[in-house]
């Protein structure tokens, strides 16, 4: 959508002093954010890529372009298992959190007693660090934890060893529990905000026209809250794929998720492994990038089909 401003700037060829001043002001106003993000964020990504291709003169290594680090990494089956684990934890927790968040937002939109208090309460996990969630998972879900004690109380198990292992397994239910606990409020906030913005009129109209509740949800509500769903699931999935602390503490050990693998490479005394770590980091970025951009592309296509964008 070309706008009047830019049209004036570029097509007339001549700019008045006022216009030029406005342009300079605009550039000056955008400069800090552009510089910070381009230099830090872009710079970090470019450097990571260069290093993973063998450019590390500060270690006395410069074999750029050298694909052997990627070759070694992608050639090992451990990498693919790690990648699978990383995506599995990320995907399962995002899906569970999303379903829970949609149900919660649909309940929150209705009036009920104590709603003001509830709106404080449900945001609690959003406000505190992931490490707190991990501590709570250790306390609740560990073999000597509260859940295990409750099961002993009702006579289901006789000693802590009988408790089904939740933490430190490759099924990762402890990790998933932490992500879900922390991200349901985040997704609910996003979806609830969209619900507030659109009002309930279209749903009521559908109900009066005789739509069933299932029809109303899938044909009216879901398409409306899709922007909130897409943005919050994108953010949460990307976070889950790149997170370190939960898989490090609650994971099942080797094979680890990719961020933990990268960290171990990186802390290796052998400098050459740092480049391997960089290749791991870049692989995380590439995989996450491909998945997220495909997701966005599908979503945009859907919006275009509906004629919304």
């Amino acid at each position: 959508m070309a706008t009047q401003d830019t049209a004036l700037d570029t097509r007339s060829g001549r700019r008045s002093t006022a216009q030029r001043n406005a342009l300079f002001l605009r550039i000056a106003e955008l400069a800090p954010i552009v510089i910070v993000l381009f230099v830090l964020f872009g710079g970090a990504l470019v450097l990571a890529l260069l290093q993973s291709l063998g450019f590390a003169p500060w270690f006395g290594i410069n074999t750029f372009p050298d694909f052997s680090y990627f070759g070694a990494l992608w050639g090992s089956s451990a990498f693919w298992v790690s990648l699978g684990l990383t995506l599995y934890y990320g995907l399962v927790s995002t899906i569970i959190a999303l379903i829970m968040a949609i149900v919660l937002s649909l309940a929150l939109i209705k009036p009920f007693r104590g709603k003001t208090l509830y709106k404080y309460l449900y945001k609690l996990p959003l406000m505190i660090p992931y490490t707190v969630g991990i501590a709570l998972a250790v306390l609740m879900l560990g073999n000597g934890g509260i859940l295990s004690r409750l099961m002993a109380l009702v006579g289901m198990i006789d000693n802590p060893g009988d408790f089904p292992q939740i933490l430190k397994t490759h099924y990762g239910w402890g990790i998933i529990a932490v992500y879900v606990w922390k991200q349901v409020p985040f997704m609910t906030l996003a979806i609830y905000a969209v619900l507030l913005g659109i009002g309930r009129e279209t749903e009521e109209a559908a109900a009066i026209l005789g739509a069933t509740r299932r029809q109303i949800f899938f044909s009216v509500t879901l398409p409306q809250i899709l922007p909130g769903i897409v943005s919050s699931t994108l953010i949460c999935f990307a976070f889950n794929v790149g997170a370190f602390e939960a898989p490090f503490i609650l994971g099942g050990g080797y094979p680890d998720t990719l961020p933990v693998v990268a960290w171990r490479y990186f802390n290796d005394a052998n400098y050459a492994f740092q480049l391997q770590g960089m290749a791991t980091v870049v692989s995380i970025g590439i995989v996450a990038g491909v998945i997220l951009f495909a997701y966005l592309a599908v979503y945009r296509r859907y919006e275009r089909m509906r004629g919304r964008a």
Partner: peptide, 28 residues
């Protein structure tokens, strides 16, 4: 203000939210 490429610019500003933190952390 509106300018050409504003949508892409806004998308660029959101990118840090969807790039895995481990990638940024180790590279930085």
């Amino acid at each position: 203000e509106s300018f050409r490429g504003k949508n892409s610019f806004e998308f660029f500003l959101s990118l840090p939210l969807i790039v895995p933190e481990a990638a940024i952390g180790i590279a930085l």
